[in-house]
Amino acid sequence: MRIHIYISVTVLIVFQKSASEAVSLPSPTNVSIHCDSYGVEVRWKYPDLSQGVQFQVEVKDDYNIRNSNITQKLRLNISSLMFTTQYNRYFVAVTAVRGGEESKPTLSDSFSYNILSTTNIKCFLDFPEIKLSPKDGKLHVQFANPLQLYRNSPALRDLTDNLKYCIETEEENNDTCKTCEMTHNTCEMSIEFSKHRGEYCISLTGEIGLRSFNDERSCFEGDIRSYPSVTEYVYPVLGVVLTLLFITGIIMLLVSKYNATIKKKASNIFPDSLKISLLPSPPPYSPDKEHVDSNVRVEPKMPPEEQHLKEICDNKTEYPDTKDPESSDSEAKNPYGGNDLVEDEPYNQSEGYDCPHAPRQEMSPGDMVDGYGPKLLLDV
């Protein structure tokens, strides 16, 4: 009988133990670390969240200093739980909690921002956006100062070291390093290339104390060679022109002043009787045009023999009272004069006009005055 009692108690204990193990909380899985310039985040997975399970996240370092926090999510930023990130390395343990029950903790890999630390995960910083541009025949590299950009990050608080960065190019022996202090808003450097390239690429590395940056590669496409601007030629030429104009103005002013002085001295040297010669001469006298009578009779020029006949005729006409006595008697008898209508003898044209006509002379266009009449012949 006692044997049966012992067997029953043993079976009951085993059953209760198996039942308690069946209802215990499972542990989180796939705990991972994600770190960058702004902090560290822990992520994990859990099979069932429907029963109000919470998670306790505990951060500890090599000196066994622990800090923890509780969340219902499957991730947590643990930057505020870290300290002296430049030297320490860390571990994270995630435990599922429900009421008074706790699961077994799940550990993460070790991680650190210290580049010299022997850890599974190395946390690196990232450079801000890099701007490349040509400047004075060189490639100008510029980016925001990480010391100011990340100084409020919980994982990088208490930054005291300066940024040291280096730029590497595709050319040999062309690596350049420089220091950027906290007081600078931007970090910048100009890189010179030995020959022209269609594409200029650089590789940027740096560190703040023992914190290291991820390598950043950037390229610029274009021409970085320096060409003189138009103003470099315009301003010198304009300066020379203005200088020449200024000198010319001064010379003209001095010449005019010198001429005035000479005239003043000359007027004091010469007597008053000779000063009139210094006055400007009056304009040349222009006599009035000779008045020409518009009723002048213009006669054509005659040959000498015709001129002689004309004089004979003129002499006869000067004595009209010299007449034949017979003709005067007949005119006295007939008060009306002779009957010119009765002709006893044929009319002789030569008897009625005793001066023969001068032969008609043709006039050439050259003898005309302005095309309206013969030239006036004046014998001097």
Rank of each mutant, 00 (worst) to 15 (best):
P280R: 15
M1D: 15
D161K: 14
E345Q: 03
E299P: 04
K60H: 12
E172V: 12
H4N: 11
F15T: 15
K60L: 15
D370C: 12
N173I: 04
E102Y: 04
V9W: 10
S286P: 02
I247S: 04
G100K: 12
T205Q: 09
D314H: 04
A144I: 10
N214Q: 14
L278Y: 14
S226N: 05
S68A: 15
S18V: 01
D340T: 10
L309D: 06
S37D: 02
F193A: 05
T317I: 11
P236F: 04
D344H: 12
V57S: 02
A22H: 13
P303C: 13
Y235P: 05
V255F: 14
P374N: 13
Q56A: 04
S327C: 05
Y113H: 07
T84Y: 02
P356K: 12
Q51Y: 09
M302C: 06
S190D: 15
E207K: 13
I269K: 10
S294L: 04
Q307D: 14
E207Y: 08
R197E: 15
E170P: 00
L274G: 02
E331D: 03
P146G: 03
M1I: 08
L341H: 07
Q16H: 12
V255G: 06
R75I: 02
P300W: 11
T95I: 03
T186R: 12
F91T: 06
I269T: 05
V237W: 01
T85N: 15
V141S: 01
L341N: 06
N77D: 15
N77P: 08
D272R: 13
P271K: 08
V380Y: 11
R197L: 15
L377F: 08
V53W: 03
K60A: 15
L204M: 00
V230Y: 00
R151M: 07
I121Y: 06
Q56D: 05
Y150Q: 01
T106A: 11
L254G: 07
K122Q: 15
S226T: 04
L163Y: 10
P236W: 03
N88C: 04
Q361G: 03
L107V: 11
S226Q: 05
P374K: 11
Y46D: 06
Y319R: 12
V23E: 07
T106C: 01
I5W: 09
N88H: 15
E306C: 11
K195A: 07
P304Y: 09
D158T: 08
D136V: 08
D109A: 09
L116I: 01
R89N: 13
E290Y: 02
V292W: 13
D109F: 03
S108G: 00
T106P: 08
T322N: 10
P26F: 04
V31K: 00
P271Q: 09
R2H: 10
G206E: 05
P374M: 02
E192Y: 00
I250F: 13
M82C: 10
D329V: 05
L341A: 06
K138S: 13
